[in-house]
Amino acid sequence: MILYRILNLQISVGFFLFLLCSPITASSLYPFSQPKQEAQFKYLLKELRCLVCQNQDLADSNADLARDLRDEVYGLVKDGQSDHEIIDYLTKRYGDFILFKPPVKSVTALLWFGPALFLILGLLVFWRSIRQGHHDPNGGGS
């Protein structure tokens, strides 16, 4: 029984260590000579969405397509392309959906400026209601 428990503990510790180690092994799959490129690579993988498992980024996803796209991004970063060029390359093929952060466009204007717009609208309604209440407690027309 004790032996079983120790074994069990060892397995859990082993699994925990495995979890700790996996990000390190993942980055050594993509070796870079320049730390700047490595930083760029890591940044881009966090910004890009896996199209198969849609709520994971490219860095985390184990899907086959995500692996291919990681290789693709790796190649482009090694070629010395800028963030802008790489993102352009991918959105040309997969559309804006591949980006977690949607670009500011006429289609996404409401998404970007909506909150501010609605806040102003809310404040306006609030202000009008308060003024209304102050002037005319019975709520009748002015």
Binding site: F118, L121, L124, V125, R128, S129, G139
Partner: peptide, 12 residues
Amino acid sequence: MNKWRLIPLLFF
């Protein structure tokens, strides 16, 4: 002036 209070409802 009641219409101002309707805006949040319509918005919702």
